[in-house]
Design a protein around this nucleic acid. Sequence first.
DNA 1: CCAATAGTTGAAAAATTGTTCAACTGCGAA
DNA 2: TTCGCAGTTGAACAATTTTTCAACTATTGG
Lengths: 124, 124
Amino acid sequence: MAKTEHSASSADCQVLHPDIVDYVRKRLPESHISLNLANLFKLFADQTRIRLLQCLLTHEMCVCDIAVTLGVTKSAVSHHLHALKLSNIVRFRREGQVIFYSLADEHVEKIVSIGLEHLLESEE
Amino acid sequence: MAKTEHSASSADCQVLHPDIVDYVRKRLPESHISLNLANLFKLFADQTRIRLLQCLLTHEMCVCDIAVTLGVTKSAVSHHLHALKLSNIVRFRREGQVIFYSLADEHVEKIVSIGLEHLLESEE
DNA sequence: CCAATAGTTGAAAAATTGTTCAACTGCGAA
DNA sequence: TTCGCAGTTGAACAATTTTTCAACTATTGG
């Protein structure tokens, strides 16, 4: 086998440490996993969505109440909730015309608290 | 006191449950915290950066080796590393012309593994 | 000191993402 | 069954982010 190559390599340089590259490459997860992870973290990568999640961390809420609390339109909230729903981060229950959203599991809480931990520890 | 208002309210609706809104609003963290959190998670919200972090999760690496492994240019890798460095997610050490990057602490590992946990549990 | 290579930088271009707007659905009350 | 309100939707627009490119710095070896 020739030198270790990557499928669509646009790298503009040579391998400097072939042993390290081989070691790492063997352990690198499949590409679709990193894609799914990135897509998941995109949901946490927006201030409005973080605040929305911080709301739901406290109490289930309907779209209108979230919109007023965050100072954004119902439409924007609805779009965000739709994205969060697609990734099973929130769930909802309908009560008449009103739909209450809440967090689907504890992962949001865990991710946010590790994020906060990092922010606190990396301040100096 | 008049109805609960928000500083720059572009909400296109009324509060439906004033008690819930008050309860949540009192507990909502300050705005700069959600901004910092969102900015932190932005670093995890890109497939290339996730793969880069997955590399460093395995072993410290230099810019060239990362570029070849991921199939992107040195420049792109350098930009990503710069962003990660600014948030204290990676650190580096120089050895001659070569700069080895590694993870600055265990937060990356924790965040990625909770992300993976969520992905596994939300598949059905 | 000069050449070669590792890495960085900033600005422009390309790609992605968030918000807005207007029209729409669904539910309940009258 | 009609009206009003809660919420959704998709497309257009605006804003942001990622990649690329070319020029740059830093370090080593000759």
